[in-house]
Design a protein around this nucleic acid. Structure first.
Lengths: 250, 250
DNA sequence: CATCATTCATAACCTACGTTAAGATAGTAA
DNA sequence: TTACTATCTTAACGTAGGTTATGAATGATG
């Protein structure tokens, strides 16, 4: 199974809507996997934007450095995720991206992406991917705005849990999460100390067990109830009518 | 000048990248403007999603009702903005949308939008619109996470100011803003009382004058300096190479 | 005009979270 | 093994912003 087949197809195909021609187009793209070390930077804010990437292995994150010296993390990327769609259409990067641990990424040029437009219904798949990412950001916005720290952290952990489950990286309610509490604090907009406090709280309530980079959620549904999780933006694929249109299009 | 010409072209065309054929396609769409009253709801969260809208007149906002009784506003829509691109590709609405004051909107079906895909390079324009909206959300995320109330409010007002300036709705550093402090508080994730406090602060510093629904920024650049505003997501159009591709495509 | 509902301003008080700091634990290198 | 560093925990204290409440200004309606 080629890289494209395993990674990009998963990202773009939606309930088998990719036609054989679309697949051929994708497979025709030149793919040169890049091996990244931990903390390596993919690109910096305001650099020229001309490509996007699919994460094959490892975790990454996008962030913005703030004037007060701290940084705000916008999103964590797990294997199978697409990085840089956000910047498609802009000439420069809106945020920096760096690896968390070592991994492998597959770059595509926007030029290649663009050439797919008009030649196949892939455009819709790209749009769907972009909108799904946007939906995830919206969820984060909601939690940053109105919820207490323990609800934010619960929501965050449950989202990671669901996303990892989709790629079969959860076993026995446990998963590998290469994030420091400092990274989590940058993502949730709170202090590292308070992240620690909040983890302690969730641990005492038996909701989260954490040993270094190994996380166990003894009762994921209890977490989900705590945050009233809206999982449609993760689990839901394209709408049925949308899929029909995709299949029917030439 | 038709509705389409004035509103949608503005939204989708990017530095004259729309070809005559694209324009013909757009003009061929059936357009039935709908007259909306203040507070009227366009759609509710989790309703079936099958259309998007262009705002012709009036302001609107998307929001989510939270379990604790409050709501989080995701975005305010000004004349010329597209509502509902976010949901394209999902079968149900991820957020509710309601008018703020009375206005006029122009609905398009996703079906119509989809048919444009593959038949013209409009797809790229749609993607660009979606990504620009996503970029705006990212900016909000950054401000919610790490900045103090007065910085958040300054950022918010300056963003509105820039967006209104783009549609020539700013005169002499003043503009009409039909938002209550309660709506603003729902958008920024803070209490209405604190929005009032913060407005008082900015007023005392001579940065913002507000009389009911009329806002004046005596020195917009001073506000911008206060928040170190990143305006590329508003002012920047497509990247030059991207525009070239659009023009060159059949 | 009087009445009523919104919206806003300001004050008093309280709490969740930030900040600073000092240890504890684990992983790594010599 | 002994440092040495990164990461985490817990405590003590300060503050930004939440909550509640009261009154003023504005606008709508009869």
């Amino acid at each position: 199974m080629s890289l494209i087949d395993s990674v990009v197809m998963r990202a773009l195909s939606t309930q088998g809507a990719l036609s054989p021609e679309d697949k051929a187009l994708l497979l025709g793209l030149e793919l040169s996997p890049r091996y990244m070390s931990a903390s390596e930077v993919l690109w910096q804010e305001s650099e020229n934007a001309d490509l996007f990437c699919v994460v094959k292995e490892g975790w990454a994150y996008s962030y913005r450095n703030l004037k007060n010296g701290s940084k705000q993390i916008l999103k964590f990327y797990l294997p199978g995720d697409i990085i840089g769609i956000r910047d498609f259409g802009f000439s420069r990067r809106l945020a920096s991206v760096a690896m968390i641990n070592k991994g492998v990424i597959c770059p595509f040029s926007y030029q290649q992406l663009f050439e797919l437009f008009g030649r196949s219904s892939l455009a819709a798949g790209i749009v769907a991917t972009a909108t799904r990412q946007q939906a995830q950001l919206s969820e984060r916005l909601i939690y940053l705005g109105k919820y207490a720290a323990h609800e934010q952290l619960a929501h965050f952990l449950y989202e990671i849990y669901l996303r990892l489950k989709r790629i079969n990286a959860v076993e026995d309610n446990s998963f590998f999460m290469p994030l420091t509490q400092e990274l989590i604090s940058d993502a949730l907009g709170m202090s590292p100390v308070h992240v620690s406090r909040t983890f302690s709280m969730l641990r005492e309530e038996g909701l989260v067990i954490r040993k270094r980079q190994h996380v166990t959620l003894p009762d994921p549904e209890a977490l989900a109830r705590l945050v009233e999780f809206n999982d449609s933006y993760i689990d839901e694929f394209l709408s049925p009518s949308f899929s029909e249109l995709l299949k029917a299009s030439p």
